[in-house]
């Protein structure tokens, strides 16, 4: 069985998948896509794999998947027998889903703001940053209350897909000029994420050692 990730090093959604693959200790091969300046993800060959023209794309034998959230769930279902990353328990599962959908909808402006500042993708920058800050505030309020109740992670008592899905947007926010000053609970949680066994970095997300 060959697992192939079509990947771009600077893409925060591809990074989520690389991070989970590393945490799960899964062998895979990586195809580097020339997103900038080549826009290769929108070439006819890539549009046949993913008509949305974005990354990541995971090819696993006959299965071709787009959308980092879907790919995270697929990999967890297939390779995480203990259900650590995608809990089987209905309540925990539902709570993880809340943050996976939050990551793809409410954190989309953060992804856009970063692409605007780094790769000159057109955007209403002020609106994207205002929406990013609203989302980060919701995350910080959540982790503030979680910590006050003695918990360290977004859902349950260990790291889940929820943590992986929402991590890159805030960890990379300085790329688009949003500092971490206003998010003390997220600052502490981001240090914890770096302690996940198999944690890997990407440009803009340094390790602390």
């Amino acid at each position: 069985m060959s697992l192939v990730l079509h990947d771009y090093e600077l893409d925060s959604d591809s990074y989520k998948v690389r991070l989970l693959l590393s945490a799960l200790g899964i062998e895979y091969s990586k195809v580097a896509v020339n997103v900038h300046p080549g826009h290769e993800q929108r070439s006819p060959a890539y549009l046949r794999l993913n008509p949305l023209g974005n990354l990541p794309i995971l090819v696993d034998g006959d299965t071709t998947l787009r959308d980092s959230g879907a790919i995270l769930c697929y990999l967890a279902r297939l390779h995480d027998g203990d259900g650590q990353w995608l809990p089987a328990d209905s309540q925990r599962f539902g709570e993880v889903m809340v943050w996976l959908f939050f990551a793809s909808a409410d954190l989309a402006p953060a992804t856009l703001a970063r692409l605007h500042d780094m790769l000159e993708v057109p955007a209403d920058r002020d609106a994207a940053i205002a929406a990013s800050r609203r989302a980060f505030r919701i995350m910080d309020d959540h982790m503030t209350k979680r910590e006050l109740e003695g918990f360290a992670w977004f859902v349950g008592d260990h790291a889940t897909l929820a943590d992986i899905a929402v991590f890159p947007a805030i960890a990379l926010s300085r790329d688009f000029g949003v500092d971490h000053d206003e998010y003390p609970a997220l600052r502490r949680w981001m240090r914890r994420v770096r302690t996940i066994p198999g944690f890997i970095t990407m440009p803009g997300i340094p390790d602390y050692h």
Binding site: D179, H180, D181, P184, A185, R187, R188, R191
Partner: peptide
């Protein structure tokens, strides 16, 4: 500038 117990030993935080 911050809550004391929110700043763990060996860590830093930016503020203004």
């Amino acid at each position: 500038l911050a809550l004391g117990d929110g700043l763990e030993p060996g860590t830093s935080a930016g503020t203004q």
